Simulated assay, not measured.
Amino acid sequence: MNVVRFSPGARTAWHCHAVGQTLQVTEGFGLVQSRGGEVIVMRPGDTVHTPPGEWHWHGAAPDHFMTHLAMWEGPGEGGGPESEWGDHVTDEEYRTR
């Protein structure tokens, strides 16, 4: 588990997790989007789960800081990498909300 803090407008690159990921927002307002899906606003207390292999990104809203707990499990011995990273989220993708 990691505590991750984002400045306004900061976000991850597109990525996926072998066993999925759960985010628990503790402060601020954030955004999360699965590939091909709508951008979802996250608020303190919200929990968002992305299933195994689902490409997604997450970060702070344009005008807010955001902190979340990021929780995941590894794929186990010999199961390959825990996460795979893709392209950076473009400003255009980020603004489509």
Rank of each mutant, 00 (worst) to 15 (best):
1 M>A: 14
5 R>Y: 13
6 F>C: 03
7 S>Y: 10
7 S>W: 10
8 P>L: 00
9 G>L: 01
10 A>H: 07
10 A>D: 08
10 A>N: 07
13 A>P: 07
14 W>N: 01
15 H>G: 02
16 C>L: 12
16 C>D: 13
17 H>C: 05
17 H>R: 05
18 A>C: 11
19 V>E: 15
20 G>Q: 03
23 L>I: 06
23 L>T: 05
23 L>K: 05
24 Q>W: 15
26 T>I: 07
26 T>A: 05
26 T>N: 06
27 E>C: 11
28 G>V: 05
29 F>H: 15
29 F>S: 14
30 G>S: 03
31 L>A: 06
33 Q>T: 02
33 Q>W: 02
34 S>V: 13
34 S>L: 13
34 S>F: 12
37 G>Q: 02
38 E>N: 10
38 E>M: 10
39 V>S: 09
40 I>V: 15
40 I>D: 11
41 V>M: 13
43 R>M: 12
44 P>Y: 01
45 G>T: 04
46 D>V: 05
46 D>W: 05
46 D>Y: 05
47 T>D: 11
47 T>H: 10
50 T>L: 08
51 P>D: 11
52 P>C: 04
52 P>T: 02
53 G>K: 02
54 E>F: 08
54 E>G: 08
55 W>A: 02
57 W>N: 01
58 H>S: 00
58 H>G: 00
58 H>F: 03
60 A>S: 05
60 A>Q: 02
63 D>L: 07
63 D>F: 08
63 D>P: 09
64 H>Q: 11
65 F>T: 13
65 F>R: 10
65 F>L: 11
66 M>P: 05
68 H>V: 03
69 L>F: 11
70 A>Q: 08
71 M>Q: 14
72 W>K: 05
72 W>V: 07
72 W>P: 09
73 E>R: 11
73 E>N: 14
74 G>Q: 12
75 P>Y: 08
75 P>V: 06
75 P>R: 06
76 G>V: 06
76 G>F: 07
76 G>C: 08
77 E>F: 12
78 G>K: 00
78 G>W: 03
79 G>R: 04
79 G>E: 07
81 P>K: 07
81 P>D: 12
81 P>W: 09
82 E>K: 04
83 S>C: 15
83 S>M: 14
84 E>Q: 12
87 D>M: 04
88 H>D: 14
88 H>P: 14
89 V>R: 00
89 V>Q: 01
90 T>M: 01
91 D>Y: 01
93 E>A: 00
96 T>D: 15
96 T>Q: 15
96 T>V: 12
96 T>C: 14
96 T>N: 15
